[in-house]
């Protein structure tokens, strides 16, 4: 199962290494990872998407992360009401004769064109990772010259449905 885990850490050199090293040592499969500053000056937040086989392993992951001295908080937010966002920069082969067609079919994804050249258009598309996947599949037949994805970042909605299912250990 795919889980979205957020980790608040104190900004110390080496903390990223400690956290990712730990995941590797315990054989967790990281699908994506993003890190950035938060509203607090010395605190960063990491967002992991990991593939995990069962609940026991998930519980281990959360506990092992929580154990680290510079880790302040670990949350599995998968089952909460959340906003997941990712950004992708996609260079699509787009010769003049196809450009209008391509622009038209990607329209519903509301991408931004951030660069163009004679044969290539670079789209910036943001949204749920599923949307990005769909966008990529859509343009793939035209030829993708280069693809860069940021990885997922997430935010928990302020208002949660009353009964958000949660792992027992997080209750």
């Amino acid at each position: 199962m795919k889980r979205v885990i957020t980790v608040s850490v104190i900004n110390q050199s080496g903390v990223l290494n400690r956290v990712t090293g730990l995941l590797m040592k315990r054989q967790f499969n990281i699908e994506s990872i993003t890190v950035g500053h938060t509203e607090l000056s010395n605190i960063s937040k990491m967002t992991f998407v990991v593939n995990i086989s069962d609940e026991v392993k998930l519980e281990q992951l959360i506990k092992q992360l929580s154990k680290q001295i510079d880790v302040l908080k670990v949350n599995d937010i998968t089952d909460k009401s959340i906003v997941l966002r990712e950004l992708a920069l996609v260079k699509v082969v787009s010769p003049a004769n196809l450009r209008l067609e391509i622009n038209a079919i990607v329209e519903p994804f509301r991408p931004q064109i951030i660069d163009t050249s004679k044969n290539v258009v670079t789209y910036q598309v943001t949204g749920h990772p599923d949307k990005i996947d769909a966008f990529i599949e859509l343009v793939r037949p035209y030829g993708i010259k280069e693809l860069t994805r940021t990885g997922v970042t997430a935010s928990v909605r302020e208002t949660q449905p009353v009964d958000t299912p949660q792992l027992s250990i997080l209750k």
Binding site: V56, Q60, K63, Q64, S66, K67
Partner: peptide, 11 residues
């Protein structure tokens, strides 16, 4: 004393 040891090997 280490919560991570609980349930790690034996339920």
């Amino acid at each position: 004393i280490d919560p991570a040891e609980i349930g790690k090997i034996i339920p």
